[in-house]
């Protein structure tokens, strides 16, 4: 499996995401700086990591979404390359238009940094195939702008099309319909606020995130 992790100024989960990709696939991802206009050839998977790209200036993810490398990411996504955006990466993907809606300031205005309970809404996607439908899992969150917003028609469509991957099983940030992660219509782009890459080893205090990466590698191998 050939993967890459995008690095913006202010990214801080890029190395954690690279470790997770390598742990399940055995191959080290390319780290791609935001100024690059082209991605390495033949990528199967692109990670857009968490952090505070460009200091969250203007809006979280707004500047990163307009960086040269994101045009290449959008083109790769259109060709079917898998894209996983976590936390700030989710914000970047909505700002890029690869996923619908927007992530707004948490309803309680506070930065939320703790483990939260999630339910797996769609266990059929390439990202969630190792989970059971409705299974409850625990991932850490660490964000200020995780309050998912989209208009009612978009929310209805996401639900009808099975594009809600994860929901919060508790009150976290005011997200519409408790949405924690969504898929694009083709199913090859996932954006989520919680951090699966922070729970892949027992030493992390949990391993619920590992199955996301394992399922993804399995799906990519099956596709190849």
């Amino acid at each position: 499996m050939k993967s890459a992790v995008i690095v913006f100024p202010g990214s801080n989960c890029d190395r954690d995401l690279a470790v997770a990709f390598e742990a399940v696939s055995g191959s080290r991802p390319a780290m791609v700086w935001h100024r690059e206009t082209e991605l390495p050839d033949g990528l199967d998977l692109i990670g857009v990591p968490g952090g505070f790209s460009y200091g969250d200036y203007l809006r979280s993810g707004a500047m990163a979404a307009r960086s040269p490398v994101m045009q290449a990411v959008a083109q790769a996504a259109a060709r079917g390359t898998f894209v996983l955006g976590i936390c700030n990466g989710f914000q970047v993907l909505t700002e890029t238009g690869l996923l619908p809606g927007a992530l707004m300031r948490n309803a309680g205005t506070h930065f939320v940094c703790r483990d939260v309970a999630l339910t797996v809404d769609n266990s059929q996607s390439a990202f969630t195939s190792r989970y059971g439908a409705g299974e409850q899992i625990s991932f850490p969150v660490a964000h200020h702008d995780g309050n998912y917003f989209a208009d009612v028609q978009t929310l209805d469509r996401l639900e009808q099309e099975g594009r809600v991957a994860f929901r919060y099983a508790e009150s976290v940030n005011g997200s519409a319909r408790n949405i924690a992660g969504i898929l694009n219509d083709a199913g090859n782009v996932l954006g989520m606020m919680p951090h699966p890459e922070r729970v892949i080893e027992k030493a992390h205090g949990g391993t619920d995130g590992r199955r996301l990466f394992e399922g993804l590698v399995e799906s990519l191998m099956a596709k190849a």
């Binding site: 203007l58 809006r59 707004a62 307009r66 909505t94 700002e95 619908p100 809606g101 927007a102 707004m104 917003f149 989209a150």
Partner: peptide
């Protein structure tokens, strides 16, 4: 349209 505002919100 392209940067200063996010017209979704």
């Amino acid at each position: 349209q392209k940067l200063l505002a996010n017209t979704v919100i």
